[in-house]
Simulated scan of single mutants.
Amino acid sequence: MLLKWIRCAVGDRDLFDQGQQDWADLQGVPGFLGQRGGWDTDASSIAHIFGLWAERGSYQAFMRGPHDLLAKRQVGTYTDIDVRVYETLQIIGHSPGDVAGREMLRVARCEIYEPRISHFTDVQASVWNPGMIRALGFQGGLFARRDANEFLVVTQWESAEAHNEYRREHFPRLHERAEPTRDIQFMIGHKIPLEAAWYVPPTT
């Protein structure tokens, strides 16, 4: 499964919002597994969009086919764009679900010291994933990889309050067990309240 992360720098949020809703036509594209996104809480002019694809073949077929026609509808609604595609390594509980209420995404992009990659991926499966699954308000997530040492953890939460509770009640113990400071060369995190109007359900 592929995870596509799109980050856009936006001048006019209303104009971008209208353009983003036009991506509803993704539903029905073979191999498409859903899309969601929202505005970064720490940078209100940055929009994040995440799309899921069943495998690389269906994604590449989409990029060769209807992508450009859909993308034309949003030309001029952003000033800069960064697109990254990751291979999913682990599903945390289950894939993130529908966007229905106050859901938010927590995103962590990590660059790992090469000798520590095996340890980092092992503790994601044995420590972090079970710890998050037990937390109230956790709604699924993905652990994915791009290039040799770049990893992405995307988790969906019922609300910012649910994630804050996890940080207070579970995170310190999990952090102590996982020892991430020995693995991580660089990390940046984002909190993204989801825009329900940007959600595109998967192709059925």
Rank of each mutant, 00 (worst) to 15 (best):
I91F: 02
I91V: 14
I92Q: 00
H94Y: 00
H94R: 14
H94N: 09
H94T: 04
P96S: 12
P96R: 11
G97W: 00
G97V: 02
G97A: 04
D98F: 04
D98E: 14
A100P: 01
G101F: 02
G101T: 00
R102V: 03
R102K: 11
E103P: 10
L105I: 13
V107L: 15
R109T: 11
E111R: 13
P115R: 08
P115K: 09
P115E: 11
R116Y: 10
I117A: 06
I117L: 12
I117G: 05
S118D: 12
F120Y: 13
T121H: 00
T121R: 07
T121V: 08
D122L: 11
V123K: 15
Q124D: 11
A125F: 09
A125E: 15
S126E: 12
V127L: 08
V127H: 03
V127K: 05
N129Q: 14
P130R: 08
P130F: 04
M132F: 13
I133H: 08
I133G: 07
I133A: 13
I133D: 12
I133M: 15
I133N: 12
G137Q: 08
F138Y: 15
F138M: 03
Q139S: 11
Q139R: 15
Q139E: 15
G140C: 12
G141V: 06
G141Q: 05
G141I: 06
F143P: 09
A144N: 04
A144K: 05
R145T: 00
R145I: 02
N149T: 09
E150D: 09
F151K: 08
F151P: 07
L152M: 13
V154S: 12
V154F: 12
W157E: 01
E158T: 07
